[in-house]
Design a binder for these strands. Structure first.
Length: 824
RNA sequence: GCCGGGGUGGCGGAACUGGUAGACGCGGCGGACUUAAAAUCCGCUUCCCGUGAGGGAGUGUGGGUUCGAGUCCCGCCCUCGGCACCA
């Protein structure tokens, strides 16, 4: 009994993160100190973290994305910005539906339970999120507007319906999402090999913006993300060339190819179509019919990943017919092969085996002629053993022989355009955005199919098209909406006759393409957002998140904003001015993720060491953009340091003898630290920021032992330390701020400024190198002259030992850096 | 294959525009306090030779530029991400 009481009294003065974190979180919430309002005279700063998917558990990987950006947001706030740093949930998606199928829980219930749990975990982090602005994409008040945007895009001509191949399991008779195709292209449920099936689906015309999406001027994004998006768009300059068709009974008199190398046109020895090309049937001669049909069927059975795998043996079949190369009037045989993709260019290729590696392999396999038409500039007449894909000098090219590839390119294009045999053009790898999902748990596409009127958009006043609560979840793989008569059967908004609803829902990337607009006015119910508030906050000043979204979310959001701008709904064309990607957290050799089963929950660390320690440790691992390995024992270092800081602040400092020199030194240290912490925060170097704060506390411990500075200066040092610590360890800093007699709250205080004069070093240590090797060091005043340094250095015993009896060839003095002596 | 990041002590990582390599932390060793342990505090800790002062080597690897290279240039190796038969 006695023991316990003693212990308790002792504990009251010890750092107790569990107690103080809970207490401050409650107080901050009650006082609403993080509530965000528009329109005071501070400059605004929109600091956004990618919102999480509602998987159910927040793991250390999530904290790694969120804690440092909260630190940055807090830092900006203390610097005097009006900061919006919101949080919400990406709440539609497949896992919710799978849970419904396997466990019989309704997706809504599953999702909202997860949100409940995640919100609780997020709150334990102690971030400045204003929960009044929370956005949840699966709620009707949100997806009503997702549907509204679909209609806007539809009316702007940016949405269209087309047949497109989807993954199809012949055994389950169902459509599969890419992530449901496992291993070597088989169905995740039954293991059957997945094939392709054409379905009518909805697309957004993102390709219309291909050119503009290549333009990154005016936005500060990581180079590698920009490169990834550029590669994704895959712009190629080239020409479309029309080959003449003289096929009996065929109306079409020409067929087009896209090429980036019109200069190689005289090297065409065969012509290739993709097996899916619409003319395959008509260009097949009766003798070839059986073989062609068999090949086409075989191609359809090939899974996508096999087809695009590199290094496969070339396959193909001759159709029996020919096309004419108008430039040299040659008849060339038409083949089909699966390495020609139906979705790129025109789905047809001119075969130039001498100058294309793939065509070369194909020609070798099927013993087709290989005719060189380009040679290297230094060519000596040797034989061609592999495709020469570089530029060079044209040979065997009629009137163009002798020109360089570049000249030939232009000359041939000129001729093609003059004769009407072709034209210069640009091709993109980018395809339109397929937004249809044959799923329940997404925003329903607000369209109705009427027998009389055709496709009819749901009128705006009838939004949202609600998800029926009574759909049945069976493992059929098809949308439960399809089998829900109360949903499907409706009346036509135009003619009031019977009609059916579209049963596909929208890709969830649609929901995440505009959520950052909704945060500005989450409760607005007559529009998706309040235009004035979007004007005030947008574009996002800093967007942080994982690089895995480079060509999905980040790309779609850019498109979306450009489309909204063109409709006059917003007045900017780029959503995210500054993008920063944090690295990934590795655990047990893999990226931490729920699907890999290697997650570490923050909860137990929070319970044991406190949220401040977890926040701090994540930032201390290394540079934020590089990520790193989570280790259980590394965190104790931060925890110990926070304890040490507590002890340092809580102890009663008593001055023994005030020494002006040490006071000066401490003042210098204070300002040096403010500068370092400020600059490190500015460039997201949280690890070195913490290192410098640790150096500061180490230094303060020495001062505390020596007790040779005045009490006011000591207090100044401590206050400054707490302010610098506040973004990183908000709870601890607040507690100590109050305990040292300051007014509540530290989080409404201003960031400390540093005095450049006080940052300057007065004394510097100069290393002395002799013939490039470090031999001595000398402490000098920072204002020392070059002549003084040289004299001083040459007089030193250790230097003399190397210079006596030798000739000094050179003495280099780099001010404040180094003295380098060259002797012989 | 192409594009991009990265290779620094036992470990995570520092190092400004080329100027004292290894800050800070973890771990380890030694010491103080304790009956003891934990916690805490102090000291040491790149490797090799040397009792020591000191000397030598050293940032994946081989060259180069320079008074001086982790940092710049050329060639190679490993590793992590992205894209991948895109005509």
């Amino acid at each position: 009994m006695f023991w316990i009481e003693l212990n308790f009294c002792y504990m009251a003065h010890k750092y107790n993160p569990q107690e103080i974190e809970k207490r401050w979180q409650e107080k901050w919430a009650i006082d609403r100190i993080y509530e965000v309002k528009e329109g005071d005279n501070r400059p605004e700063f929109y600091c956004l973290t990618m919102f999480p998917y509602t998987s159910g558990d927040l793991h250390i990987g999530h904290w790694y994305a969120m804690a440092p950006s909260d630190v940055y947001a807090r830092f900006k706030r203390m610097q005097g910005y009006n900061v919006l740093h919101p949080m919400g949930f990406d709440a539609f998606g497949l896992p919710a539906e799978n849970a419904a199928i396997s466990r019989g829980i309704h997706p809504y219930e599953w999702t909202m339970n997860n949100i409940e749990k995640m919100r609780h975990q997020l709150k334990s982090m102690g971030a400045i999120y204003d929960w009044n602005r929370e956005v949840i994409t699966c709620l009707p008040e949100y997806y009503k507007w997702t549907q509204w945007f679909f209609l806007k895009l539809y009316h702007a001509g940016l949405a269209y319906r087309a047949k497109a191949p989807v993954n199809w399991c012949p055994k389950c008779q169902t459509v599969l999402a890419n992530e449901q195709v496992v291993g070597e292209g088989s169905c995740e449920r039954c293991g059957t090999t997945v094939t392709k099936k054409d379905l009518e689906q909805w697309f957004f015309r993102i390709t219309k913006y291909a050119e503009e999406l290549l333009d990154f001027s005016g936005i500060n994004w990581p180079e590698r993300i920009k490169i990834m998006q550029k590669n994704w768009i895959g712009k190629s300059d080239g020409a479309e060339i029309f080959f003449a068709l003289e096929h009996e009974g065929l109306e079409q008199k020409e067929i087009r190819v896209f090429t980036t190398r019109p200069d190689t046109i005289f090297g065409v020895t065969f012509f290739l179509l993709s097996p899916e090309h619409p003319l395959v049937g008509q260009l097949t001669t009766p003798e070839q019919k059986a073989e062609v049909a068999e090949y086409v069927a075989w191609c359809r059975r090939q899974p996508e990943y096999m087809r695009t795998a590199l290094g496969r043996d070339k396959t193909g079949v001759f159709l029996g017919s020919y096309v004419i190369n108008r430039l040299n009037r040659e008849r060339v045989p038409v083949w089909i092969t699966d390495y020609v993709l139906p979705t790129y260019g025109t789905g047809a290729v001119m075969g130039v085996p001498a100058h294309d590696e793939r065509d070369f392999d194909f020609a070798q396999k099927f013993h087709l002629p290989i005719r060189p038409v380009i040679v290297p500039p230094d060519w000596s007449g040797g034989e061609l053993t592999q495709a020469y894909a570089e530029l060079g000098i044209m040979i065997n090219s009629g009137q163009f022989t002798g020109l360089s590839s570049e000249q030939g390119y232009e000359a041939i294009c000129d001729l093609l355009e003059e004769k009407g045999w072709g034209r210069r053009t640009v091709s993109y790898r980018l395809r339109d955005w397929l937004i249809s999902r044959q799923r329940y748990w997404g925003a329903p596409i607000p369209l109705v199919y009427c027998d009389k009127c055709g496709i009819v958009p749901v009128p705006e006043k009838d939004l949202p098209v609600l998800l029926p609560p009574d759909a049945e979840f069976k493992p059929t793989g098809e949308s439960p909406l399809k089998y829900c008569p109360s949903f499907v059967n409706t009346t036509c908004p135009k003619c009031s006759g019977p009609a059916q609803r579209e049963t596909d829902t929208m890709d969830t990337f649609m929901c995440s393409s505009w959520y950052f607009l909704r945060y500005t006015s989450p409760k607005t119910d007559e529009a998706p957002f309040d235009t004035e508030k979007v004007k005030y906050w947008l574009p996002v000043d800093l967007y942080t998140g994982g690089a895995e979204h480079a060509v999905m979310h980040l790309f779609y959001a850019r498109f979306f904003i450009k489309a909204l701008r063109d409709m006059g709904l917003v007045d900017f064309g780029e959503p995210f001015t500054h993008l920063f990607n944090q690295g990934t957290i590795i655990y047990r050799g893999a990226k931490m993720s729920k699907s890999k089963g290697n997650v570490v929950a923050p909860d137990e660390y929070v319970a044991e060491l406190g949220a401040d320690a977890v926040r701090g440790y994540l930032m201390f691992i290394g540079p934020w953009e590089l990520g790193g390995e989570w280790s259980d024992n590394g965190i104790v270092g931060i925890s110990r340091w926070l304890n040490k800081a507590w002890g340092l602040v809580e102890k009663q400092y008593a001055s023994r003898a005030v020494e002006p020199e040490t006071e000066k030194e401490l003042r210098h240290f204070i300002h040096k630290t403010i500068k370092k912490v400020t600059e490190d925060l500015e460039r997201f170097r949280f690890n070195t920021m913490l290192a410098s704060l640790m150096e500061f506390t180490n230094y303060l411990s020495e001062v505390d032992i020596a007790r040779n500075v005045s009490i006011p200066l000591w207090q100044e040092a401590i206050s400054c330390f707490l302010l610098l610590l506040a973004p990183t360890a908000p709870h601890l800093a607040e507690e100590l701020w109050i305990r040292t007699g300051h007014p509540y709250s530290i989080h409404n205080e201003s960031w400390p400024n540093f005095d450049e004069e006080l940052v300057k070093e007065e004394q510097i240590t100069l290393p002395i190198q002799i013939n490039g090797k470090l031999r001595d060091k000398v402490v000098v005043s920072a204002s020392v002259s070059e002549a003084e340094v040289k004299e001083l250095v040459l007089a030193r015993e250790r230097v003399k030992a190397y210079t006596d009896g030798r000739k000094i060839l050179n003495i280099i003095y780099v001010p404040k850096r180094v003295v380098s002596i060259v002797v012989r």
